[in-house]
Design a protein around this nucleic acid. Sequence first.
DNA 1: TTTATGGCTGTCA
DNA 2: ATGACAGCCATAA
Length: 112
Amino acid sequence: MSDLYERIYAVVRRIPRGRVTTYGQVARLAGMAGHARQVGYALHALPEKSRLPWHRVVNRRGEISRRSIPQAEAIQKLLLEDEGVVFDGKGRIRLDRVLWIPSGFSRRSSGR
DNA sequence: TTTATGGCTGTCA
DNA sequence: ATGACAGCCATAA
């Protein structure tokens, strides 16, 4: 297990309930800006027994990213809904509403 | 060692 | 708003 993964997991674990964030955001918080995909890899390699709220990580569009197993997309959606995350008619999340921004980190590139 | 891929993102149309 | 391209870089073969 690499330390990179540990960092990613640590960041994801900090995501509050009912809140979501993007891969890029997690990557940045983990100190590996630009490695958004590696975040996805880390989550992919994550054991299911893990309590990591991987479902709180979505892509930048605010939707469930397409991955190897489409099945998990539905699961993730259910988990999020269970936490109070609201999806719109297109199955997407209002990032402007539930996006988790940790203290000390402003929005990307001079805001909005 | 190199090559291919991928749970992404930013820019351009 | 979405679709298409390119860049980025760790992991897998």
